[in-house]
Design a protein around this nucleic acid. Structure first.
Length: 961
RNA sequence: GCUGAAGUGGUGGAAUUGGUAGACACGCUGGACUUAAAAUCCAGUGGGCAGUAAUGCCCGUACGGGUUCAAGUCCCGUCUUCAGUACCA
């Protein structure tokens, strides 16, 4: 590849300047934040990266650059800014790599962060170096790594706190298990309003006290905020682990795209459902994009309605259902249970048994995916059983059908075919009755589901009522006869918290008599044991099952050899590890303290000072994972009074993805012959991904490099353009190694400089929008920086030339126009437009030949958040000793922009025809007279008499007629 | 299907409360400098029509309507793209 250094002739030696200032900042701790300051605080946070072996590409730093611009701007504005960075360093890729190569994940993780050579002899630059090259103003003294025992000690600690807590509905907050035990001792559990397992039975104080310790612990597990239970989990065989709902996209695993099946397993879960309402309500208090908030609202999925209990004819069983339309209770003509419903087996009559069994078998065979893809096929079977209608006592057929999901509500529905389309379709298909309970509703073709206009009919005491009133009365009557109650249902399920993996936080848990016990705070952290292979054991246990030293000695309070397990004083430890989101759910608190990290997260003083994140920048793909779990943990920590904030992130901006521009060489089908993009006509070709490093900005391929790249192309033939060049085709795709379209920021920095990279990434387009990367466009931003440099220098030798002469009026106007625009743009996160504004300012000042210090000095401060290195250098050259980073932002003075006249657009019937300079203090009448007297106006009118003349002072004049 | 975001030159994009559509760049074309190139600088660049020219006119912000003196911007309807979600009772 031909490497040209476009800066070679300029005296703007960005490589030297950038290295110099990066060293200066590091040596002087320029960006170390203090926890004590008279200044107001501002906390700017990036979503911390997972340090992968592939390193950073130009898409990764986009959000970091934006947050860095903002952090630097806030420092200029007089804020004490916390802008830290760290690594989310537990995770699947490092473990997959460990399985392949046998290297300890801690080893590869460290190399990925700090640089070095992996055991395949690949040289890895390391995240830290790559980030440092871009000139971020991070306070690295506060760095966190989630896989460091000193960090995960507190992740484990939070887990034990969750284990020691239950959710009290009366106080609407988490409380300690010990106070729950106190209540049980006093009065049993009858009056305890808790978010807990459904199947807990009522007991008295006397009963509680007579229970064995074992039985008591079993009951308490049903109340704890993190609990161990047999639950339906998403099992991914290929990854060898369970997955949370948010880790499954379209029925397959988010990572790898492997099949996921439902399976009953004993797993740790987090009772996030207890916080559903607060998670929903508090969304109104944060400044996030509407789309992310909406995604979370949908995920939480609140619906208000009622539980209705149906008695089964000739059977003890009761079937509770959830409905949002209790007003249509008289429209119930059958019931449908999910095929997996626990009562199906006992309800089914001997006559129907064969059909029911066959149906269950058939639906079980269909994968989750098939069931989702195929929503049109209606299927189901009658169980032979009947329920009683709670009011009419009429018999109701009980069916099973796979349109009812076992996982939502009670896994059963009361079918109201006249008001619900799915029930309607089912009824039509199986020829079941469709009674109409709406006034004047035509249900001959479709169900009538409009709540707003519904008026109830044929419904006894509900006749003539609107939806709202009928719901209220129906619930009242149901409660009165004991057949139901008002109920709010949430879609949000408890989150599965264990993973059958090695590279994650170990649980601080040991098992005594099959029941989990947590380790005390003073024994944390419990560190990951060494194992030989990072695979499940032969008996199917998680990788930690391979550890020899993985037992807990309750007397020595230490991890000891498994051979010592006697289940008297030495017990086996938990073999699962925590999921990826554990460490990232609270890291923002950890940054608040740099030295005293032996306290809980951070000292109370630090927590009180920094509070929570003022600005959070990151991708929107975490909407239902990280961003929900973090909010949950913060609310929990708030309940326990460890923190004083209810939300972690006050304002959030989601940066869009930077896409790659893939290059394709067109190969003639069936031949080892390539055709240049302009010559493909007449050939049947297929595009072959070509490494973008072989292609220059004019889309010309370096044929030699391409031939050397892969053996298959060594002897390939090339049909070139007439001028001898070979051109490739381009297409915008996601930036990825496999598409050979990755652009490395290190290369951009060495060729154009970090300031150019920073400005160009901002210039590319609106931060929140997805946009393609094109290295071709970078020259514009680079020449801008050179122009800026030249503004301060003169002559062939480019000697520094800034004069103390007072600024001209025009130059002052340019400066203040720029201050205003740039300030507004940064406040609105419109970084792309402020880069244009700088370009305009420098173009105009160059035209004015301005070299006045009064103008150039504030200009450097304006630009410094975007291009900090060149700004520091010029600031230094202007005679300052201190770093530019804390210098006050220039103050806008409107008086410099006051104009005495304006060039008005004169339009005729809304179309601009010519412009005319008019004084701004003219009256409307004078303006109209001046315009009408203009010869061009007379020419435009061509004798016509204007009907109307619209004069908007300071804006426009429009002549109608 | 539902929810959210978007659709503007060859390309990325600008137009903050309705008021000069295409700022600023890239690319392209022509020119200056140079032995040549790079770098730099200057000029032009939405489409069409008329004119030697200055210039003038018509069309133009996905599409079709509407409101208004004036619409990329507001209203109604349609289409397309992207993202999220998926039988939620």
């Amino acid at each position: 590849m031909l490497i040209i250094n476009p800066g070679s002739m300029s005296k703007y030696h960005f490589n030297e300047i950038e290295a110099k200032w990066q060293k200066h900042w590091a040596d002087n701790g320029t960006f170390y934040a203090s926890n004590q300051s008279q200044k107001p605080k501002y906390y700017v946070l990036d979503m911390f990266p997972y340090p992968s072996g592939a390193g950073l590409h130009v898409g990764h730093p986009l959000g970091y650059i934006a947050s860095d611009v903002y952090a630097r701007y806030k420092r200029h504005k007089g804020f004490n800014v916390l802008h830290p960075q760290g690594y989310d360093s537990f995770g699947l890729p490092a473990e997959q790599y460990a399985i392949q190569t046998g290297q300890h994940p801690a080893q590869t993780t460290q190399v990925n962060i700090e640089g070095g050579t992996d055991n395949q002899s690949n040289k890895i630059t390391g995240y830290r170096k790559q980030l440092d090259n871009i000139g971020f103003s991070f306070d690295w003294s506060r760095e966190v790594r989630t896989s460091n025992p000193a960090y995960y000690k507190w992740t484990q600690w939070i887990f034990t706190k969750l284990f020691d807590s239950w959710y009290c509905k009366t106080n609407d907050k988490a409380r300690s298990i010990s106070c729950l035990v106190a209540i049980f001792k006093q009065e049993g559990n009858a009056n305890v309003a808790a978010v807990c397992d459904d199947e807990i039975e009522v007991f008295s104080a006397k009963q509680w006290n007579s229970f064995t310790d074992q039985a008591q612990q079993q009951i308490l597990l049903g109340y704890r905020l993190t609990y161990l239970a047999q639950t339906q989990v998403n099992w991914c065989a290929e990854l060898g682990t369970v997955l949370a709902n948010d880790e499954i996209i379209n029925g397959v695993s988010e990572r790898g795209g492997y099949a996921v099946v439902r399976k009953k397993m004993k797993q740790w879960s987090m009772r996030i459902s207890a916080y559903a309402e607060r998670l929903l309500q508090d969304l109104d208090t944060v400044q996030w994009s509407e789309s992310i908030k909406e995604t979370q609202r949908n995920w939480i999925g609140k619906s208000v309605g009622a539980t209705v209990v149906f008695n089964v004819k000739g059977h003890d069983a009761k079937i509770p259902v959830f409905t949002t339309r209790p007003d249509t209770i008289f429209g119930v003509s059958f019931m449908t249970l999910a095929p997996e419903h626990e009562l199906v087996a006992s309800l089914t009559t001997p006559n129907q048994k064969q059909a029911v069994d066959a149906y269950i078998k058939a639906t079980a065979k269909r994968s989750e995916r098939e069931r989702m893809a195929d929503v049109k096929t209606i299927s189901g079977v009658f169980t032979g059983a009947y329920a009683h209608h709670p009011f009419t006592k009429q018999p109701i057929q009980i069916w099973i059908g796979d349109y009812v999901l076992a996982g939502y509500g009670t896994g059963a529905v009361m079918a109201v075919p006249c008001g619900d389309q799915r029930d309607y379709d089912f009824a039509k298909h199986f020829d079941l009755p469709i009674p109409n309970v709406f006034q004047n509703a035509d249900i001959s073709q479709v169900a009538f589901s409009d709540k707003d206009t519904a008026v109830i009919a044929n419904s006894d005491f509900l006749d003539g009522l609107s939806y709202k009133k009928a719901v209220k009365l129906a619930i009242y009557k149901l409660e009165k006869i004991g057949a139901g109650a008002g109920k709010t249902n949430y879609r949000l399920r408890d989150a599965v918290f264990s993973r059958q993996r090695y590279w994650g936080e170990p649980f601080p848990v040991y098992y005594k008599d099959g029941l989990p016990h947590t380790l005390a705070e003073e024994h944390l952290p419990i560190e990951l044991p060494k194992i030989e292979k990072y695979l499940p054991t032969e008996t199917g246990e998680p990788p930690l099952g391979r550890a020899d030293m993985w037992a807990w000695d309750t007397q020595k309070c230490a991890v000891v050899s498994n051979t010592l397990i006697d289940n008297q004083t030495i017990f086996p430890l938990e073999l699962n590890t925590m999921p990826g989101w554990a460490g990232s759910s609270w890291y923002f608190f950890r940054y608040m303290e740099k030295a005293n990290r032996d306290a809980v997260f951070a000292s109370k003083k630090a927590l009180d000072y920094w509070q929570n994140v003022d600005l959070y920048i990151g991708g929107s793909e975490h909407a239902t994972g990280h961003l929900l779990y973090s909010r949950f943990w913060v609310k929990f920590l708030y309940d326990l009074e460890h923190v004083t904030v209810k939300e972690p992130f006050k304002k959030m901006i989601n940066q869009g993805m930077i896409l790659g521009e893939s290059a394709f060489a067109y190969r003639v089908a069936g031949e080892n012959k390539f055709v240049s993009a302009g010559k493909t006509q007449g050939y049947t070709t297929q595009g072959i991904h070509t490494d973008v490093a072989f292609v220059n900005t004019s889309n010309e391929l370096d044929i030699q490099a391409f031939k050397n790249w892969q053996v298959a192309f060594k002897d390939a033939e090339f049909i070139t353009e007439d001028d001898g060049s070979f051109k490739v085709g381009r297409e915008v795709e996601k930036m990825s190694k496999s598409k050979y379209n990755v652009v490395n920021p290190d290369d951009i920095c060495s060729q154009y400089g970090a300031d150019t990279l920073r400005m160009y990434e901002m210039f590319l387009g609106p931060l929140e929008q997805a946009k393609p990367w094109s290295t071709a466009g970078i020259s514009g931003v680079h020449s801008f920086l050179k122009k800026l440099w030249r503004l301060f220098h003169t002559g062939q030798e480019e000697l520094f030339n800034v004069s103390p002469t007072p600024a001209s009026k025009d130059a002052l106007k340019v400066l203040h126009k720029t201050i205003k625009k740039v300030e507004d743009d940064i406040e609105n996160f419109s970084f792309n437009t402020s880069v244009s504004t700088f370009m305009i300012a420098v173009n105009e000042l160059t035209a004015l030949k301005c070299n006045s210090k009064d103008i150039l000095e504030p200009l450097v401060v304006l630009i410094s958040p975007y291009a900090p290195h060149i700004a520091e250098e010029l600031w230094h050259k202007l005679g300052h000793q201190e770093s530019i980073s804390e210098v006050s932002f220039p103050v806008f003075d409107a008086s410099h922009l006051v104009e005495s006249s304006k060039e008005y657009p004169i339009s005729f019937n809304g179309k601009m025809r010519f412009k005319m300079e008019l004084p701004l203090d003219m009256t409307k009448q004078e303006m109209e007279a001046a315009v009408m007297a203009n010869p061009k106006t007379i020419q435009q009118l061509a004798g016509r008499l204007p009907k109307k003349v619209i004069v908007v002072p300071g804006k426009i004049i429009n002549i109608v007629g």
